[in-house]
Design a protein around this nucleic acid. Structure first.
Length: 112
DNA sequence: CAGATGACTGCGA
DNA sequence: ATCGCAGCCATCT
């Protein structure tokens, strides 16, 4: 039995907001943690990463593959897996880095 | 209860 | 141009 029962099952925090926003990312587009944090009013982009790190993102079918750091580099535990998903979305990825990241960058505050 | 960690970013040297 | 440090919030041990 799962002795390590995650206590973050309360979607009343940033994680929920982040997941929702990430879900709104159009296919073939990518964004950065800082942009999301800024858009949601989070002083620290770290929390965005933490929100994604939570296993909830997978449960919610959140396209974490479309979320990369400012350099467009795929961060996380399974970069290969996410890279494949990005390619499937039509995003070219080279060396775990999004090609034309600047062009494919999707700013939530700008588009929303 | 307190200390350390973490999917980051921006600025300074 | 590259390298290093500090900031912030929530969770974990």
């Amino acid at each position: 039995m799962p002795t390590t029962q995650p206590a973050y099952k309360k979607d009343d925090n940033l994680a929920n907001l982040v997941h929702e926003l990430v879900r709104q990312i159009p296919k073939g587009r990518v964004t950065s943690y800082g942009a999301i944090a800024k858009s949601l009013g989070i002083p620290n982009p770290r929390m965005v990463g933490w929100a994604m790190h939570t296993t909830e993102n997978i449960k919610k079918n959140v396209p974490a593959q479309r979320v990369v750091n400012s350099t467009g580099h795929i961060t996380g535990g399974h970069p290969e897996f996410r890279r494949d998903l990005l390619i499937k979305d039509g995003v070219k990825v080279i060396n775990n880095r999004v090609a034309d990241f600047k062009r494919l960058f999707w700013d939530p505050a700008l588009e929303l």
